[in-house]
Design a protein around this nucleic acid. Structure first.
Length: 574
RNA sequence: GCUCCAGUAGCUCAGUGGAUAGAGCAUUGGUUUCCUAAACCAAGUGUCGCAGGUUCGAGUCCUGCCUGGAGCGCCA
């Protein structure tokens, strides 16, 4: 399917080049000017602001617009071109072209607006990346939904996409997890033991411990925490994957940070940084103030290994290897991204919470210090998400307490249980990632017309309903004459043809939420049409009914495509 | 203190430097003999945080300020 705004832009550029060649316009470099649908009726379907050229062409914008309109090459999708002050070039789409697109949409099916922007290119999306120390929380969920939608959109743009999950099972967290499970297990065996406050308090460890006790009795009693760490880790991953699968999310590859230690890759990276002159040994960083130095002295720090990230714009240098010889999190993170780049991804999207902002910056500095181009790496930062409820007494929203009490929830599982996988996905996606998200629990739970999830799905359901009914009545759209379609149906087709541009915008700006808003807008165009444009109705002549049936077939294809792009289901019935 | 993000209708939020700033919810009234009501139709709501600047044109870009959030460890 063609992206008409791009086609038109090219035609206009051709016309401009012609005008320059003929000497009607002075020599100038034609800029890329976005062609977009105007907001108001009567201004056509696509609009090009000719004013952008006035200064370059040193000519009145209205004159330029008229010149372009008069010499624009012919195209099958254009009905007419109008010029409007102060210099807009407005394009009206041809009705017959739009009607033909109904069959084109059906032909393309699930590949409707499958673009070739990324053809032959590899993209990676790294997302979730939660360490296996507990369940998927509401914050991870937003990360997961945004990351997966980004991956789907990249696929729609033609990229070959890999979904990756980066995790660390070697840190102190995991040791504590293992020890926590060991304690819970011993408690299950009846031992009266204190459970330290800084251990994992979650009830899930008690459950696992109970299962272990039931399955193995006291056979594991003599095992060390290492054994319990392994068990806990395996169980956590099972749980995480099951939770994600419940909202139709999965990863192609799990990348263990530990492998970077085993391969000694981190030390190779450190040596390369050192060779490039970006590493030094010191008890404090080179730019430390007197106060900082005194503080370090008071703590008695021995010299550590520093990366001079300030040379790349950082506000302070960062420790790579602590004075005790252990690397910080940053060094393997740099090595990991180095590895990513070497794997040859043209785009490497990284979905992170804003609490990783500084970390992500340092990684980019590290990449540059290795004389590599961090260009392919793009980070989508996800702002905080919290579950809220409307408090009638206070007249404002309040955060749902993150306690384990019944009715409160802070995990994906509980969220899905309270609402639905589709509702979770839609609401987590339908926000700009860099705005804080208040997840209104009651509203999402409500399965009513105030919930846009069902508004969109219902559009697909309605299409499916027509076909069920038509089949029962033995009616079909064979031998259809699409010229019988009316203005209402064309309005939908016009809107649907914007999908390609939406996908492109979402991909090039790394803003997957755009697809969610588009889906809502398209449903808002659809429902009034469905209300008026009936198919199986006594007053509708058979040939018109055939055309309309074909139209709803196309509409169903479009909604199916949209729902899948958002990772949502396309139910046949509500 | 420094860095980043946000501030748009009563609420939750969209908004590619372009034309008269939008949607949903909430509020009020209306709509179904025949696929449809989780829907449709109609009605009102704005100091786009404040002040400057750039531009033919600014909610959008720049500067400063105000408010809210996140980050600023030899944590991961």
């Amino acid at each position: 399917m063609k992206q008409l705004n791009k086609e038109l832009e090219q035609l206009i550029e051709t016309a401009l080049a012609g005008a320059i060649a003929r000497g009607d316009l002075p020599e100038f470099e034609i800029p890329s000017v976005p062609v977009s649908p105007p907001k108001r009726a009567g201004q056509g379907d696509l609009s090009y602001p000719g004013m952008s050229l006035a200064k370059l062409a040193r000519k009145n914008p209205l004159e330029i617009a008229n010149l372009v309109a008069a010499t624009l090459p012919r195209a099958d999708f254009i009905d007419k071109i109008e010029v409007a002050p102060p210099g807009f070039i407005n394009c009206f789409l041809s009705e017959s072209y739009l009607k033909q697109q109904v069959d084109r949409i059906i032909e393309e099916g699930e590949d409707f607006f499958q673009l070739d922007i990324g053809a032959g290119q590899k993209a990676q999306v790294e997302f979730v990346s939660a360490n296996p120390s507990g369940p998927i929380t509401i914050g991870h969920t937003r990360n997961a939904v945004v990351g997966d939608a980004m991956a789907r959109l990249l696929e729609a743009a033609g990229y070959e996409v890999q979904r990756e999950y980066y995790y660390n099972n070697a840190g102190n967290q995991m040791i504590v997890l293992g020890k926590s499970l060991l304690l819970r297990y011993l408690q299950q065996l009846g031992e009266d033991l204190d459970f330290p406050e800084d251990y994992y308090q979650g009830a899930y460890l008690v459950e696992i411990a109970a299962e272990l006790a039931a399955e193995h009795g006291d056979a594991l009693k003599e095992s060390g925490w290492e054994r319990f760490k392994d068990i806990a880790e395996a169980r956590m991953f099972q749980w995480i994957n099951r939770s994600l699968a419940a909202i139709d999310i999965g990863h192609d590859r799990f990348y263990n940070e530990t492998s970077l230690f085993e391969s000694e890759r981190i030390w190779a990276v450190l040596e390369e940084l050192r060779d490039n002159g970006h590493i030094y040994q010191s008890a404090h960083w080179e730019g430390a103030g007197a106060e900082e130095i005194a503080d370090v002295a008071a703590k008695g720090y021995q010299p550590a290994t520093w990366f001079r990230s300030t040379a790349f714009g950082d506000e302070k240098d960062r420790v790579m290897v602590k004075s005790d010889g252990a690397p910080t999190y940053t060094l393997p993170d740099i090595a990991y991204h180095c590895d990513k780049l070497e794997r040859g991804f043209d785009i490497a999207v990284n979905v992170l919470g804003t609490d990783h902002f500084s970390q992500a910056q340092v990684v980019k500095y590290g990449i540059r210090a290795l004389n590599m181009d961090p260009g392919p790496i793009h980070v989508i930062f996800i702002q905080m998400v919290r579950a809220v409820r409307w408090n009638e007494e206070l007249g404002k929203y309040q955060a749902v307490k993150q306690s384990k009490r019944a009715g409160d929830f802070d995990t994906l599982d509980e969220l899905v249980q309270m609402t639905s996988a589709d509702a979770v996905r839609y609401h987590m996606l339908a926000r700009s990632p860099n705005s804080q998200l208040d997840f209104d629990v009651d509203r999402v739970v409500k399965q009513s017309n105030e919930n846009p999830v069902y508004y969109i799905q219902n559009a697909y359901v309605r299409c499916a309903g027509i076909f069920r009914e038509a089949k029962e009545r033995g009616f079909n759209d064979d031998g259809v004459d699409l010229s019988l379609l009316g203005e209402a149906e064309l309005k939908f087709i016009r809107k649907a043809l914007e999908l390609g541009n939406v996908i492109e915008q979402a991909v090039t700006h790394y803003e997957p939420h755009k697809i969610a808003f588009f889906a809502g807008e398209l449903a808002a165009v659809f429902h009034p049409i469905y209300d008026q444009v009936r198919v199986l109705h006594s007053e509708v002549p058979s040939d018109v009914a055939k055309a309309r049936l074909r139209f709803y077939r196309a509409a169903g294809v479009v909604f199916y495509r949209l729902l899948r792009l958002m990772g949502m289901s396309a139910p046949e019935r509500m």
